[in-house]
């Protein structure tokens, strides 16, 4: 029948049939065959999401998908190793993977969105306070925001300095430096427009190798990273052992059990699986009841009352 149609029309009828046929073969048959192959023992558990059971024997998630170990107010639960910061939903939302997508020069806080620098500084201070180490970093103020000055100059970008504002320190905060080039530094007034100021990040005297590791102050690309660096696990060991009345050496042993090195010795980076580690801790070194900050049914209902 095709030979009677003009070529351009004949091609279209072929095209429709090819699209339909491909839909059936590679669009449906191929993924269904692969799903059938996934039922083979050995593959099945992985194909279904590498599920793990908690210390109570119930389904507790997946060994591949990270979790938050915080209470309902977002505060770290001290008996657990903490995961990295997350941008997936409100944190480790398995149905909303996402990165922060802020760039390396994201240094000035917007009204409704802190800059990446302030996020990093704030996390570093919080982790430092929690673990009892110095959370100081370069370009960070002591109160944990980005140390960035807005410098007004006589001729816009050049000339004498006329006014200086610490852009990320909202009043009444005390600016992290008193003066800049002889001009008193002000705190930032809410609602003021500092758009004409020149942005000057101040490095400060923070350490080149901060006590709080890089992965503890940065979010992952998926927001679901199940791992932390061995350095961050080490930093948390003393606190977790204390909360569980356990030997630090016993906790360290579990850490090394759930540390994956580089594949083949060279691929990727070593990481400690926080989900598996915390489940193992609950199983082998359960925390004493009194210090448990896990939200129980009772505490939940009392919060509702308040």
């Amino acid at each position: 029948m095709n030979h009677r149609l003009p070529p351009w029309l004949a091609q279209n009828t072929v095209a429709i049939r090819v699209v339909l046929l491909l839909t059936l073969l590679v669009g449906l048959a191929y993924p269904l065959v692969m799903t059938a192959a996934a039922q083979v023992p050995g593959l099945r558990g992985k194909a279904e999401g590498s599920r793990v059971t908690g210390a109570d024997g119930k389904d507790a998630g997946s060994s591949l998908i990270g979790q938050s170990f915080t209470d309902s107010k977002g505060k770290p639960i001290k008996k657990y190793f903490q995961s990295r910061p997350s941008n997936a939903g409100t944190g480790y939302d398995g149905a909303a993977s996402a990165a922060g997508n802020q760039g390396p020069e994201s240094v000035v806080d917007a009204k409704d969105k802190p800059s990446l620098l302030t996020l990093v500084c704030g996390r570093s201070k919080a982790v430092g306070d929690l673990e009892g180490v110095d959370g100081a970093r370069r370009f960070c103020t002591p109160d944990g925001v980005g140390a960035v000055l807005g410098v007004f100059r006589e001729d816009g970008t050049t000339g004498r300095v006329t006014r200086v504002v610490s852009l990320n320190q909202a009043c009444p905060a005390k600016p992290f430096v008193a003066t800049y080039k002889g001009v008193d530094v002000e705190c930032a007034k809410s609602g003021a427009d500092y758009g004409r100021a020149n942005t000057v990040p101040v490095r400060g005297d923070g350490p080149a190798n901060p006590k709080v590791p890089a992965d503890a102050v940065t979010a992952s690309a998926s927001g679901l990273d199940p791992h932390i660096s061995p350095a961050y696990a080490k930093l948390q060991t003393a606190r977790v052992a204390r909360e569980r009345n356990a030997d630090e050496s016993a906790v360290r042993k579990l850490i090394s059990k759930y540390t994956t090195g580089r594949s083949l010795g060279v691929l990727g980076e070593p990481g400690v699986n926080v989900v598996l580690l915390n489940i193992a801790l609950d199983r082998e070194h359960p925390a004493p009841k009194s210090s448990s900050s896990k939200p129980s049914q009772a505490s939940k209902s009392s919060q509702q009352g308040a």
Partner: peptide
């Protein structure tokens, strides 16, 4: 400030 371009990378 971070100590490397770790923001937005996965640990593994």
């Amino acid at each position: 400030a971070i100590g490397g371009p770790h923001e937005g990378t996965e640990t593994r």
